[in-house]
Design a protein around this nucleic acid. Structure first.
Lengths: 141, 141
DNA sequence: ATAAATCTCGACCTTCTTAGTCAAGAAAGA
DNA sequence: TCTTTCTTGACTAAGAAGGTCGAGATTTAT
């Protein structure tokens, strides 16, 4: 498992917004229902995503969330990197817990794990939200 | 972080055994000291690793652990797959918790995450314990 | 035989992360 | 001003990760 449930919810929420782009703000409750995400949890997630620059919101009657980037401009890597927070914490793929790498990137596994990390993010960076919308459940190559 | 601390310890222990291959059994306490692994925890880990077919042990005076495969025949992927246990649990890279994939591999992310998983394991499968011994701390390309 | 060295086994504990909930409040429009 | 909808931050629960311990079984040395 590379991606936590929470981060998968974040991706799903953005996919849902992409599907409905152009028809005005989408209510949290609609996104939650469409993507089977616990409503209260989604509130937290969307609140965070506002900081990403990909989504914005409007309050009050007829309010909701909407994308402020074209879905083909947002990559899965963008979203996941944002959700993971402080990149310094994760720049050493061998490091387990939070905080800076105590080995200063010089442990036996640094090279190996960093190569693995790059391989994964290469794939995530090549895949856009639009790709997910297009391939949703239908199997893309 | 792709690899838990425990699994990194497992790799380190095997690397240490590889370094000392041919000089008889190595005591847990020596491995623990050489690789800075908590002794009691290492007991657990080596106990598990005995099931892998890569290491064996000998009890009593002058006992210890030793490799029963050549280090260039053991890949990082082998070790990690073994340590992760039941492969059915992990065959869907999108699945978060234990048990079989509830979506039957048909969720929106299955293709994407499985590609990522394959990319990582390609690297792990190409890297042998001998490679780690050779490159230990010195930076391999 | 007996003692010492060493692995073996299973239960146990602690800490951290992940996942998820809730209540009260602020803004926008009808 | 009432309703709708997002906003904020604290709170809780469950599980995984990391680590410890004591008592027992085996092997070798003496």
């Amino acid at each position: 498992m590379f991606v936590t449930q929470k981060n998968q919810y974040a991706l799903k929420a953005i996919v849902e917004l992409a599907k409905r782009a152009g028809s005005g703000p989408v209510k949290i409750s609609e996104i939650a229902q469409a993507q089977s995400i616990p409503l209260r949890f989604l509130e937290v997630i969307l609140g965070q995503l506002k900081g990403s620059g990909f989504v914005a919101s409007k309050r009050g009657y007829c309010g909701g969330y909407f994308l402020i980037c074209r879905p083909e401009k947002i990559s899965v890597g963008h979203v996941l990197r944002f959700m993971q927070g402080d990149p310094a914490r994760h720049s050493c793929a061998a490091c387990v817990s939070r905080g800076a790498c105590p080995m200063e990137y010089d442990c036996a596994f640094a090279t190996l794990f960093n190569r693995a990390s790059e391989a994964v993010f290469k794939i995530f960076d090549e895949t856009t939200i639009q790709d997910l919308v297009d391939g949703d459940t239908k199997g893309s190559s």
